[in-house]
Design a binder for these strands. Structure first.
Lengths: 289, 289
DNA sequence: CTATAAATGGAATTGGTGTTTCATATTCTG
DNA sequence: CAGAATATGAAACACCAATTCCATTTATAG
């Protein structure tokens, strides 16, 4: 018994002490690892911060494995146990600490000046965050509440967003599908949006997204929707938006511009919140025919 | 006896949640604190990293006090115990962009009270911001640079992202069009993605986005692209992504999850930065035939 | 100077953590 | 397809950390 243990331990005599060494070592051996251990390996490299700060139980739950699998993973790598492995992740956190400030000042310096590629990214992050910070301020609780109520009670939700905001509509469609809410994405494929929107009527809701310059087809369909007795939930950028007046619930998003381009982060986030809040609300409602 | 305890507890109903708030609160009360507690306070503010990572016993020894003094210090501040206090130091280490940590906790505070639908939104905002904060860390300057270079030199950029990340691909397509960069969106309309991707060859770049679970068709097309001599720029969520190995430039994004749903804010922001940086780079290049 | 309250040190306790074990499931191999 | 080897899940275990308790010391008020 003792001899076998000794044999096993000699398989990995040098567990990596630095995170970088650990990282490359794991990447190298990843393919040869058993399924569950590979799962742990992937999680560990994808979430190094969590690995440093959380407990085995929490990490195991997050990675979708048993606590014992975490320990086994550490031991396979040659560590005495999980704690020793975690030490590597913790020292990484200590070591990496100083360079955040460096980055921050670098960003600040280059904000005004010319565009080195990576600073472009940093400025976008900055812009996106500004939009997000202001999102809860611009969206009133009542408006959000009203929108959620309408969507939760809708028979079918028609999702509409063209050109610049089409990604938002596409994402809404994906989420509503996953949430098992009946909906239809009006993507205007084959210029058949009138056909796609043909079924709208009382009991339905049109969830329309539009920003300046307001795509005409979006405004048209919104008008048709209200004319046919469907409710309109509008995500737009101004009270003067051509569909603002028609809307039964209006959500105003102010996205910060970056040059000629407008970020979509806040809008996407709002869409996500809207979809999930509506699904939750619907679950709470009495099931209607 | 019981009454006195109750009185003491009501003294600090709101223990600070953010490190900055904690810091100023401690500085303010420092003079009024008993000797040993003041000693702990000084140590805590002087060694925030240690406070986040070490155990009570180790910290007490390092500070030259008893373990119980550490616990008392935390309780004096209004926390239930040392662990809760340590949580503040740990979150500081997690979100190591101090400026934004303030904003995050601000959102948290506003959320804390009500549990209505609008708090759902606030939680999404928080999740999105967390992703954004970490974006510049996970994207190395070299990787971004490499991706930009490839895209700037591409004859045609093929844009690919299915299902959950299709919105990202759609947005990339919109921006690349506005930036007058020749590209093709592989949206798989009519299940004709093989036809759409038929033209890929040397000189072209496939910009592929894929997250867990990796949509098979995305992996297929990525393989085809490299086989035909096109370059591959991958936006993915792990080094173990099935297309990570093939990629000539790999950008890893770690999006924070919110329940079963993954935010797209960071990915969208990265896409935006990538598109614009590439366009700028191309303008700086000598015009090739 | 005495009496009272607060603060402190050190040990006992409790809860939760990492670890180990073992039965079961799965994957190789002949 | 059978049998062996390996991998996995779930629970039991042992230990250590955080917390509490209480006796002792130190400060404060009368």
């Amino acid at each position: 018994m003792t001899s076998t243990e000794t044999d096993q331990e000699t398989l990995a005599p040098h567990p990596p002490r630095s995170f970088e060494a650990l990282r490359s070592h794991v990447i190298e051996r990843h393919a040869a690892l058993p399924k569950r251990l590979a799962q742990v390996a992937k999680f560990a490299l994808d979430h190094p911060d969590e690995m440093a700060l959380n407990t085995v139980a929490e990490l195991a739950a997050a990675a979708g494995v048993q606590p014992s699998a975490m320990v086994r993973f550490a031991q396979t790598l040659g560590y005495s146990g999980f704690s020793e492995l975690q030490g590597v992740f913790r020292s990484r956190l200590r070591d990496r600490w100083p360079d955040y400030q460096e980055r921050l000042t670098k960003v600040q310096d280059e904000t005004g000046g010319s565009a080195d590629s990576s600073s472009v990214l940093a400025r976008f992050v900055e812009t996106s965050m500004r939009s997000l910070v202001h999102l809860p301020e611009t969206i009133s609780g009542e408006a959000f509440e009203a929108a959620v109520t309408l969507l939760a009670r809708a028979r079918t939700i028609y999702v509409l967003g063209q050109r610049r905001v089409f990604p938002v509509a596409a994402y809404l469609s994906y989420m509503l599908g996953k949430l098992e809410m009946r909906h239809m994405l009006l993507d205007n494929a084959g210029s058949m949006i009138d056909i796609q929107a043909g079924g709208m009527g009382p009991g339905d809701v049109l969830l329309a997204v539009t920003f300046t310059p307001y795509t005409p087809v979006t405004v048209d369909i919104a008008n048709q929707a209200t004319a046919r007795g469907a409710k309109l939930v509008a995500i737009t950028d101004s009270v003067f938006s051509p569909i603002a007046g028609l809307a039964h619930a209006r959500l105003e998003v102010v996205e910060s511009d970056f040059g000629a381009f407008r970020c979509l982060s806040a809008t996407i986030t709002l869409a996500m919140g809207l979809a999930i809040a509506s699904a939750e609300r619907r679950r709470a409602l009495p099931p209607s025919a």
